[in-house]
């Protein structure tokens, strides 16, 4: 199958191992026109290295969904650039995006697996489709899917079922399998465990942790620092359209610098209480613009 990979032909840049799989520079996004024009993102720069796991954390109105949509080509930035695996996609049209998706370089997992899965397709059809699109033969695709299932801890007898016949946790594992079966370089996961109960949440995170061994880079987009901090190598905190802090997860959680990050970390409930007390939180809120 490797011979069919079109991206191999373009990957002639030397030192490709060090090249980021995602390189966002000086991103500006505005919504609306004229007097209603509102800034959604301002000066956002972020790189994701191959195999790296980044947690992109932002609360309501932070612009995290806009950032995800811009990286996916669904929103056109007013300035800045988005480079995916060495390819500048900022000005890509619909056809170029379709080609990019077809090559399976970047994949997505949404909060609600029903959004990633066609309700009328069996699990097997959903999982083989991205492989067939990339040029695999049916037997190859079927074999690959069967080989992949244990990695998301699903039994083969689910292959004939429809998404509606599965539990929420099983569906999300199918969505993860669909995103990763093509061995993409980068996967964006938008609140991938927010809708799951604790047992399924832990299981999906464990599966994703194991799948990282293949060298895929993961970007977790979430409102909840507490639910993804432990799986991330780095954490990027988005606040009012700007990245206010980016750093190693250990540092961002252990020694947050920006007042908003300090408030975010200090507000997150943990089994040992919150790291800031009521008074400290009140003081931090006062530091932030109203």
């Amino acid at each position: 199958m490797t011979a069919d990979r079109p991206d191999d032909d373009t990957g002639t840049v030397t030192g490709a191992g060090a090249r980021p799989v995602l390189d966002v520079t000086g991103l500006e996004v505005h919504y609306g026109r004229r007097r209603r024009r509102r800034r959604a993102l301002h000066g956002v720069s972020l790189t994701v290295a191959p195999g790296e796991t980044v947690g992109l954390i932002g609360e309501t109105g932070s612009g995290k969904s806009t950032l995800a949509r811009t990286v996916l080509g669904l929103v056109r930035p007013s300035a800045g650039s988005v480079v995916v695996d060495g390819e500048d996609v900022t000005a890509h049209g619909a056809r170029q995006w379709r080609d990019l998706r077809r090559r399976g370089v970047v994949q997505y997992v949404f909060q609600d697996p029903l959004r990633s899965l066609d309700p009328d397709l069996t699990v097997e059809a959903s999982l083989t489709e991205p492989l067939l699109v990339r040029g695999a033969t049916r037997p190859e695709a079927a074999a690959r899917v069967r080989a992949f299932l244990p990695r998301v801890r699903l039994p083969e007898d689910l292959l004939g079922r429809l998404p509606g016949e599965l539990s929420g946790g099983q569906r999300q594992r199918i969505a993860v399998a669909r995103a990763l079966v093509t061995e993409p370089r980068l996967v964006l996961l938008d609140e991938p465990v927010s809708a799951l109960d604790s047992a399924n949440r832990v299981q999906v995170l464990e599966i994703l942790k194991e799948l990282r061994e293949s060298g895929v880079a993961l970007v977790f987009i979430s409102h909840d620092l507490g639910s993804v901090a432990g799986i991330a190598d780095r954490i990027a905190v988005l606040y009012r359209g700007e990245l206010v802090e980016v750093g190693a997860a250990r540092d961002v959680v252990g020694r947050p610098e920006h007042p908003y990050t300090r408030l975010l970390v200090g507000s997150a409930p943990t089994l040992r209480g919150t790291s800031a007390d009521r008074g400290e939180r009140a003081a931090l809120r006062a530091l932030l613009p109203a």
């Binding site: 639910s227 901090a229 432990g230 252990g254 970390v265 943990t270």
Partner: peptide
């Protein structure tokens, strides 16, 4: 134990030190 493990492995707890006797 599973609920606690979820926090210890994936939550902020991973970076906030070991459980204390007293909090």
């Amino acid at each position: 134990r599973m609920l606690i493990r979820g926090h210890e492995s994936y939550g902020l707890e991973k970076f906030l030190g070991q459980p204390k006797e007293e909090s």
